[in-house]
Design a protein around this nucleic acid. Structure first.
Length: 420
DNA sequence: TCTGGGGTCCTAGGACCC
DNA sequence: TCTGGGGTCCTAGGACCC
């Protein structure tokens, strides 16, 4: 069984921000979630100062001032672009790259490529040199063990960027030292249950009886333990290429009461969903809308409902019209809405769509229009919208500390050297 | 008194991940 | 006042069938 590697960018969003701001190299830096809600990425300096993952920003704002912390709103256009650069670099080293998230990828290592740790070192050096993003790499025989290895490779745990768990004694040492709640697949529900049963480390978990594991942790948990024992249950690249669902949603910058504003946001999310579908050469048939309030119990309301279309589509106007009809059904006046979103399901690739159907001569008469819209969007950005969306974007989220779109807007490209 | 047995499919919700 | 956005998989239970 050839080992696999997990490449995991260090504090990825912070690293992206620092790439264009070398002056922040030694300063504590944090990145906030959308709407400047909470902390989602921290530099090592910020971690050392006690900033926690997921902490609400309003609770740490004063501490940021005290410690001169550089604070950024999340700039996903930038992170996505840098992520793509990292992933395409990895493909230079192996054919089998599974992009697991924006900042992580599993790699099947090449059995003829020499020592596995050396391969990892090579990859790490190349990503740092050519993209400028520091990564940690774990090498092991299963994904779950590679996760463990990567943890020990991280600076936070005294690692040097590469950690292998190929030998039995290495594995034993690592698993005995690993708190059970840090095992990949053990979450907020399983961890307390395990700890109550005296299972406090991955080492103890690994030695538990199979029947007991199956009963208390379901099949997924049993697989996780097998993986800790070195039995591969999750293959690299497993799973279909096509996503199963697609969601676009945002919290509002302020409470939204007006139906028109809610309609504008739902139309916006519907258009975004259609655009992603077209970019992925896919179409969907189920359209769902989600709206919810936040805050006080007495005025809480949330709803999620959808419609099934007669045909699969990626047409902006069809998806928008459907979403707005669903919204009419679930909208209740008088509530302070905090978030809206549009989700599509039953997604299939373009090429399995019949061109002609029993009910329509041409299944997609607006396709040329949509293609034109996509061309415009690629050249000029978000300039063409659906009428309902309006222009005001009153509901838009707060992102008061957004960095420039260094890599995706001509006007924001950093300038090297002197300006005249 | 007693009310089958076995299968499939679908969906909602929970749990987990980054 | 204020706590993100975007996914996957699994299970339990209901509907339905013979």
């Amino acid at each position: 069984m050839t080992p696999l590697a997990l490449i995991d960018a260090n504090n990825f969003f912070v690293s992206c921000e620092r790439l264009f701001r070398p002056d922040l190299a030694a300063r504590p830096v944090i990145v906030l979630s959308s709407n400047d809600g909470c902390v989602i990425s921290r530099s090592e300096e910020a971690k050392a100062l006690g900033f926690a993952m997921g902490e609400p920003y309003f609770q740490v704002r004063d501490r940021c001032r005290t410690h001169d912390v550089a604070v950024f709103s999340s700039n996903f256009a930038l992170y996505r672009d840098l992520s793509r650069r990292v992933m395409s670099m990895l493909r230079r080293y192996t054919d089998e790259v599974e992009v697991y998230s924006v900042d992580e990828a599993f790699l099947a290592l090449d059995p003829r490529g020499g020592a596995f740790e050396e391969q990892a070192r090579l990859i790490r050096g190349a990503v740092l040199r050519e993209v400028g993003i520091p990564v940690s790499i774990g090498v092991a025989r299963t994904k779950t063990l590679a996760k463990v290895a990567t943890r020990f490779a991280k600076p936070k745990h005294g690692g040097s960027g590469i950690h292998a768990l190929l030998e039995l004694y290495e594995r034993t040492v690592a698993l005995e030292a690993l708190p059970v709640r840090e095992v990949w697949g053990i979450g907020v529900r399983l961890a307390p249950m395990l700890e109550r049963c005296g299972v406090t480390t991955a080492g103890v978990l690994m030695r538990m009886d199979d029947a007991w594991l199956r009963k208390h942790m379901s099949i997924r948990g049993l697989r996780t333990v097998y993986e800790l024992r070195g039995v591969r249950c999750f293959e690299v690249g497993e799973g279909s290429e096509l996503r199963k669902s697609l969601l676009h949603s945002r919290s509002f910058g302020h409470p939204v009461y007006k139906r028109s504003e809610l309609r504008a946001s739902v139309a916006y999310h519907a258009r975004k969903v259609a655009e992603v579908l077209r970019a992925e050469s896919a179409q969907a048939r189920e359209v769902y809308v989600q709206i919810r309030t936040s805050g006080h119990i007495e005025c809480r309301y949330s709803a999620f409902d959808g419609d099934v279309l007669p045909l699969h589509t990626h047409d902006t106007l069809t998806i928008t019209r459907t979403a707005l009809a669903v919204l009419e059904r679930i909208y209740r006046p008088g509530f302070p809405y905090a978030k809206a979103g549009v989700l599509v399901r039953d997604i299939i690739p373009d090429d399995v769509m019949p061109i002609r159907t029993l009910f329509a001569e041409e299944s997609d008469p607006r396709r040329p229009l949509m293609e034109e819209l996509d061309v415009l969007r690629h050249r000029f950005g978000d300039v063409v919208r659906v009428g309902v969306e309006g222009v005001a974007k009153e509901w838009h989220a707060r992102h008061t500390r957004l960095s420039p779109a260094y890599t995706s807007m001509w006007s924001d490209i950093p300038v090297a050297g002197c300006r005249y």
